[in-house]
Design a protein around this nucleic acid. Structure first.
Length: 578
DNA sequence: TTGGGAGTTGTTCAA
DNA sequence: GTTGAACAACTCCCA
């Protein structure tokens, strides 16, 4: 679905008053929100200010969206914090956030009728995520049926997917498949756009909201149509409503990396990017540390970008400003490793997801029929998978990462590499689809486009193919954190082990185990696989899978050639027939 | 068409 | 502690 088709203009031109609704889905922010600004612009577009004009900001809790379908309690809480913050920020401008629950195709028409809505805006979902695509197409049809202006605007990437597709002549075969090729493409996009990424739009101010609108009018209604009146958030949501098991007590012993919301996002932006220009200017992602214990060595902005609590353009320009104010002597890093580079990766991943789903709807999250994914005969061992999820592999570095994931909803990028490689091609030989589903449920920064991309990369199913480069579950982190401080934090049962054994506790003599208060095989598991053995075996399997892939490609090429030859020959046969 | 170069983030061992 | 080569050799892009 292209964005140009995601709008409908009402046939009723003389309608007054204007009742404008902004439907928040992602993009949970007031700043740099072109769709929200558009919604407010409708109100001021009438020739004279109409006292009957109304504005409604709505979020629909829908258990089938990517944001909620598979969420951990931590991630659900992050979303609720973001909604609460959004409501508070709207209230400070004289408005409020209405939160409904249910399927938008049922909820929206009810609200449109109840409020006499004339205009609807939302951010466009451009990844082609199946549920969002179907939902938006259904809602568009409903808007047409109700003769309501509907406008979905791309707001969550630096450039819209349409912009990129136009640059490659709308030919999916020409979409760059590597980051360097993508960087060339974005160079073209920037040149076409006067060498710049569009500046963030201004945050709405209170005078843009209807002054006479009374938002309390629905609070005391006996039977409001699925609009909860018990804001502020968070509130308990019944399991039936959301089809997810979420109890606030589930979050009790968990300590999320960051708190949700636009306000928190800007605090994070200021405290990282805004406060250390030299660090920003010289940032190199692969050189950031995955051993830090107190706070991340990176910006910690990814959860906010994934829900749209801050816009990528806002981050882009904050980085630009910081680089501009860095001392001239600071060595400047460049994409793909720089902070701008990180935003470009995000952009690239969105374009790839968009392309995969264009070629085969819904293929982006799976191995089958995914344009970018090689077929690898992964095995299916629920016990190995479960041990990985629960941090019971017997490799402390891997298990510590998995415990941090569950506790904080976040791990450093290189930790993600280590556990993803371990689950797939490195050690356990389990499908990346399973790993991606688990990451989706646990990560505060779970993102539809980025999650699959990274799993394809790490499992050597796509984009990265050097399968003989394999992360060791011991060696990789040992060189960064010799004394295993990171492990001691997340696996306290191992914290008394001597440095010598912290990465390989099964090698500790029983006397050392007893002295350290941990018996391997009882208090902490023995390794579930022998890395040295399985990693070599798996490389052989990858090599075989690649050979089969090559054969398949050759066969496809041959049949394509044959078809071309026969189609060229066809007209002459016709002539013969005549 | 083809060959060389590049690819955000491997490991191990020797010098 | 640091650096570089060997390991065995991937694919994609572009000139």
């Amino acid at each position: 679905m292209t964005t140009s088709t995601m709008s409908y203009t009402s046939t009723n031109k003389g309608a007054a008053p204007i009742v404008s609704m902004h439907w928040f889905r992602k993009g949970l922010r007031l700043s740099d929100n072109p769709a929200l600004s558009q919604s407010l612009d409708y109100l001021s577009s009438t020739s004279e200010k109409n006292n009957l004009n109304r504005f409604y900001a709505v979020y629909i809790l829908d258990g089938d969206t990517y944001q909620l379908r598979n969420t951990s309690p931590l991630r659900a809480q992050f979303l609720c914090d973001a909604l609460q913050d959004l409501d508070q920020n709207l209230q400070s401008l004289g408005s409020r956030l209405y939160v409904a629950t249910g399927n938008p195709t049922e909820v929206l028409p009810q609200l449109w009728s109840q409020w006499n809505v004339t205009h609807v805006t939302c951010e466009a979902d451009e990844t082609g995520e199946p549920y969002a695509t179907k939902r938006d197409s259904d809602v568009l049809q409903l808007a047409k049926h109700h003769d309501i202006n509907f406008h979905a605007i791309p707001t969550e990437t630096l450039f819209s997917m349409n912009t990129y597709m136009e640059l490659v002549g709308n030919n999916t075969q020409k979409v760059p498949g590597t980051m360097s090729a993508f960087q060339s493409l974005i160079g073209v996009a920037q040149r076409k756009n006067s060498n710049n990424i569009t500046l963030p739009v201004e945050t709405p101010i209170s005078t843009q909201f209807p002054k006479t609108q009374n938002h309390d009018e629905y609070k005391n209604e006996m039977n409001p149509p699925k609009v909860p009146t018990d804001l502020p958030w968070p509130r308990d949501i019944s399991k039936d409503e959301l089809n997810l098991i979420w109890n606030k007590s589930d979050c009790k012993n968990l300590t999320p990396l960051v708190k949700g919301g636009e306000t928190a996002a800007f605090n994070q932006l200021t405290s990282t990017i805004g406060s250390n220009p030299a660090w920003v200017a010289s940032f190199q992602k692969p050189k950031t540390s995955c051993t830090s214990i107190e706070k991340p060595s990176t910006t910690g902005l990814s959860p906010y970008l994934s829900l749209g609590c801050v816009s990528p353009r806002t981050v882009w320009y904050a980085v630009s400003d910081a680089i501009g104010s860095a001392p001239a002597s600071t060595p400047k890093s460049k994409p793909p490793v720089s902070l701008h580079g990180q935003l470009l990766w995000r952009e690239f991943n969105n374009l790839i997801a968009h392309t995969a789903n264009r070629e085969c709807p819904g293929s982006w999250e799976q191995m089958e029929n995914n344009k970018y994914c090689r077929e690898v005969p992964w095995s299916n061992d629920p016990e190995l998978l479960q041990a990985w999820k629960e941090g019971r592999t017997g490799y402390p570095w891997i298990d510590a990462c998995m415990v941090q994931l569950k506790t904080q909803g976040w791990i450093h990028h290189l930790g993600r590499h280590a556990v993803a490689c371990f689950l797939t091609r490195g050690d356990l030989w389990q499908s990346w689809e399973e790993g991606a589903a688990h990451f989706e449920s646990q990560l505060l920064d779970a993102d539809y486009a980025l999650n699959s991309f990274n799993w394809l990369w790490l499992s050597c199913s796509g984009f990265f193919y050097q399968y003989f480069r394999c992360y060791g579950p011991v060696s990789f982190q040992k060189k960064n954190d010799k004394s295993g401080q990171y492990i001691r934090k997340w696996l306290p049962q191992l914290k008394k082990l001597p440095d010598k054994y912290i990465y390989e506790p099964w090698k500790a003599p029983i006397a050392v185990q007893k002295a350290s208060g941990v018996i391997i095989g009882k208090d902490y598991p023995k390794p579930i696989v022998d890395h040295a053995y399985v990693s070599k075996e798996n490389m052989g399997k990858m090599s075989l899978a690649y050979d089969i892939h090559k054969e398949k490609l050759n066969a496809e090429k041959k049949s394509k050639k044959k078809k071309m030859i026969s189609s060229k020959a066809a007209p002459s046969r016709k002539r013969v027939k005549k």
